[in-house]
Amino acid sequence: MRKFKEFIYPLILLSPALAILLIFKVFPIIYAFRLSFYDWGIAGERGFVGFLNYVYLFKDPFFWQSLWNTFMYALFAVPMGIIISLIIASLLNRGIRGLGFFRTAYFLPVITSIVAVSVVWKWLYNPQRGLFNYLLTLLGMSPLKWLEEPRGIFELLTGHSLPMLLKGPSLALFSLVLLSVWKSLGYNIVIFLAGLKNIPNVYYEAAKIDGAGPISTLFNVTLPLLSPTTFYVAIMTTITSFQVFAPVWLMTGPPPGGPLGTTSVIVYYLFQKGYEEYQVGYGSAIAFVFFILILTITVIQKTVLEKRVYYEV
């Protein structure tokens, strides 16, 4: 009876959750790892091939392109998202009136579905009839091709064609970055507001007594004390940026990933290979490279957080 109480009973309580997680999460994860060493295409499983899928992967220019696009996407989405939301959060934190209204307005995109906003933004980006090009012409600028523009944003800005490393993301990919900054703004603001509220007022009073101006206070008090929050937002945005999928499927192309493959990101490529083309083994190899990337980011987060990026209050 005691044994029942101590072991069997909690096991019964755990069993529904454990069963679901084992069957639909743990098993597929292990299975994905195993599959990445198998030749499994449309024709079915054709045996163990060792690291061959990975070898092909490293020779596959489309894989490298999708990896590069993913990095470019994150490289622009993360800092832009942080800077804009940090500015707005610090302004909202100054005890202004209408805080509720502003917070609601900024937060609305967070809860709306990525599918619906992709459909709406594709319409906004329409080269002939879209609102964005209309606004550009109102400002006296020439219209852009947005999602259909394969040239890099720095090429468009300078007017010259540039080498790979310098041309930046294509305007098409950058259009997706703008959408992601817009969509996650409200979430980041809410996290930053919580972080700002956690900074004790005494620091600001001390800074005031020492005669620090607003700029000096920002750089010497607010930003250092806010660094754990900023770091958290940076990591979360990086991880979600690496997983972007729906906007590529819905807004780019046809075929998705275009123009010229400049918006093909890693999760889209994984979906294309593993599901659409049913190259399960190859797709699983992509999945594992993707997983290692996410894991690396998580590990960086852990080590940096343990070193404490902030000063202990």
Partner: peptide, 10 residues
Amino acid sequence: IVPIPVYVVP
């Protein structure tokens, strides 16, 4: 820490 795309195909 395992995102859905990792195991979605299996």
